[in-house]
Design a protein around this nucleic acid. Structure first.
Length: 375
RNA sequence: GGGGAGAUACCGAAGCGGUCAAACGGGGCAGACUGUAAAUCUGUUGGCAAUGCCUUCGGAGGUUCGAAUCCUCCUCUCCCCA
């Protein structure tokens, strides 16, 4: 994997660049739709490519390991072959599940012992095992196994957790170097900067990951309950340290506003379940603001979902989409997800163009106001 | 024509003398959702000048300190037998 930094803006840290993988180029800043179990929920790969114009999607180590399991994915020839997505893929390591499945997992030096949310069976995720699974899944970018701490963790806990994550990182890279890709294309391992909401720890963590000379670096443990301004502050602290000539990935973020603010602070890659999950739950992101399509006020509004038309689904009327969502018709969730993803991709593409044109800052300021509006 | 069951809030349905403005579902309305245990979850759902007051459990009377609950008549539904 190679990264080229194409443009930076003087009065911000915003950057535009290109990532080259064996499955094609990614233009940054980029948003990566989340496809946890090997599918972006409700969206065909054809729509992802042709309509939404996604350049890279995510998969999840924990979910794919539990179901269908690495044997099946290997037999298929890797996740790309299995799900028919021939562009870049990134897999998360299961570190987020250490956080979200907090009640049914136990941490030790060795790793995290999970109870499957599907059948209750026990599984040990160690750094080595997580690398092995990600070799089997075959994503272009794979993530180190980390502990994602909750946003309200105290300093002592955050410090101990970070140290564990750092020891795990070392083991991840050892295993990564000991093993080979299985499907004839290169894989890159990204370390993850933790440190919770403590600048001191974040600085340490960022300095530490740099020593691995990775193809890219991630910032994790944010947007997990801490105030937004803290999230921005932590992002700033970290991007100031990470190498300029490598992509930075802010994991799990976020709202359209979060994304613009983080691009401003030097982030290149994003992923978030919001466009799909919130879409399924009736929330639409548009360039004029946020719509709760279930609200009665759209009942008889026959104007298009979005005048701008980021996706072909935007031509459906608000009244029709509201009807579908209220009636729990599958198509409603699909349309809303597709619209939101297309909007997110439009947003980062436009941000990139503004950076290239040198007027990102002003555009961002205007957009943030609109994006916060509740329609 | 004979026998039986029943009418409760937007709908379905509990309640069968006070703790009932009335359980629970559904529907309606609103909110939440950030590396997906989520096509999920939460709140609310008679009216109002609202730590209280007013009107409501088919209708009209009655018993009682007190009635959605007991009694009388009426109206209407459903089931069985002719």
């Amino acid at each position: 994997m190679e990264f080229t930094l194409t443009a930076t803006e003087n009065d911000t840290r915003a950057r535009a660049g290109e990532i080259y993988t064996d499955h094609g180029k990614i233009e940054t800043p980029i948003f990566m739709p989340v496809g946890t179990a090997g599918s972006v929920k409700g969206i065909h790969t054809r729509e992802l490519k042709e309509d939404i114009k996604a350049q890279i999607i995510l998969g999840n180590t924990y979910h794919l390991y539990l179901r269908p399991g690495t044997e099946i994915i290997e037999a298929a020839g890797g996740l790309h072959k299995f799900n028919g997505w021939d562009r870049p893929v990134l897999t998360d390591s299961g570190g987020y599940q250490v956080f979200s499945l907090g009640d049914i997992r136990k941490l030790s030096e060795e790793g995290a012992r999970f109870q499957s949310h599907i059948d209750g069976s026990y599984h040990l995720f160690s750094p080595e095992k997580v690398i092995d699974i990600q070799r089997s899944i075959g994503a272009d970018i794979i993530m180190a196994f980390d502990e994602c701490t909750p946003g309200d963790a105290d300093f002592e806990y955050a410090k101990k957790s970070l140290e564990l994550t750092q020891r795990w990182l070392h083991r991840c890279f050892d295993q990564f170097e000991k093993t080979e890709p299985k499907y004839g294309f290169k894989q890159s391992l990204f370390p993850i900067v933790q440190g919770n909401t403590f600048p001191e720890l974040r600085v340490k963590a960022a300095e530490y990951v740099k020593t691995f000379n990775a193809d890219g670096y991630a910032i994790g443990g944010l947007s997990v309950g801490e105030p937004e301004n803290i999230m921005y502050e932590m992002t700033e602290v970290v991007t100031a340290i990470l190498p300029e000539n490598r992509p930075r990935y802010l994991m799990g973020v976020g709202t359209p506003v979060n994304i613009l603010e983080s691009i401003d602070r030097g982030v290149d890659m994003f992923d978030c379940v919001m466009p799909t999950r919130n879409g399924r739950n009736g929330m639409l992101f548009t360039s004029e603001g946020i719509i709760n399509i279930r609200n009665k006020k759209w009942e008889n509004d026959h104007s298009p979902v979005d005048e701008k038309g980021y996706s072909f689904v935007d031509q459906y009327s608000k009244a029709y989409l509201r009807h579908l969502v209220i009636s729990k018709e599958m198509l409603g969730a699909q349309i809303a997800s597709q619209h939101n993803l297309a909007f997110y991709l439009w947003l980062v593409k436009t941000a990139r163009q503004k950076i290239l044109d040198g007027n990102f800052k002003n555009w961002k300021k205007e957009m943030v106001q609109k994006l916060k509006t509740r329609l």
